[in-house]
């Protein structure tokens, strides 16, 4: 069912029940991220939708964050270049992370970026939740599970990528796959 890979991480067999649960987790999480990204591009096909604007979130939506983080995010919101970057990076990042996780391509890299993004979202509004446990924090934990169990190798593109000559000759790439 489970074994240790060459890089010291756990590998779950695709046809085990752990494998199916892991695959389900990966597909749901991938869709969650992909949808979050796609809906920010809805203005491209829906005349009623507006382009994503991070300024509202950065300036007014982060007041429940720890002071140092709110200060930093508000500074980003007031800096035109960084604001323009954020307006693009969040939707594009969510789409790429969602696609990577959904397809199981560069799963570890996508999951690490997803966990980072989810952690920022979580911390930016952590004070709103009385328990301090929110869907965003659980998303961080789920991404961590995809990373440690090598979820991309289960019916994912990474299983194929790992067998290519490119990866065979550059073993460090395995840290980003799987």
């Amino acid at each position: 069912m489970v074994a240790t890979t060459g890089t010291g991480t756990t590998r779950v067999a695709a046809d085990s029940w752990q494998g199916y649960v892991l695959l389900l987790t990966r597909l749901l999480l991938g869709w969650w991220m992909l949808h979050a990204g796609l809906e920010k591009f809805a203005y491209l096909w829906d005349a009623g939708a507006r382009p994503f604007a991070a300024s509202q979130w950065l300036l007014a939506g982060t007041t429940a964050a720890p002071g140092w983080l709110h200060g930093f995010l508000a500074w980003v919101g007031h800096t035109p270049l960084l604001l323009a970057f954020t307006n693009v990076a969040i939707p594009v990042g969510e789409v790429l992370i969602g696609l990577g996780v959904l397809l199981g391509a560069f799963t570890r890299l996508a999951s690490f970026c997803g966990a980072f993004l989810a952690a920022i979202f979580y911390l930016s509004s952590v004070g709103f939740a009385g328990t301090y446990v929110t869907g965003e924090l659980l998303r961080v934990v789920l991404f961590a599970q995809l990373i440690v169990f090598g979820a991309g190798r289960i019916r994912g593109v990474d299983a194929l990528l790992e067998r290519t000559a490119l990866v065979e000759h550059r073993p460090w790439l395995r840290a980003l796959l799987g």
Partner: peptide
């Protein structure tokens, strides 16, 4: 509380990066 959680996440993220470098 938020800073404690943030520190914990930073520690775990740094550890994850270290693990993959060390294992590789």
């Amino acid at each position: 509380r938020g800073t404690l959680v943030a520190l914990g996440l930073v520690v775990l993220a740094c550890y994850a990066v270290y693990r993959f470098v060390a294992d590789e």
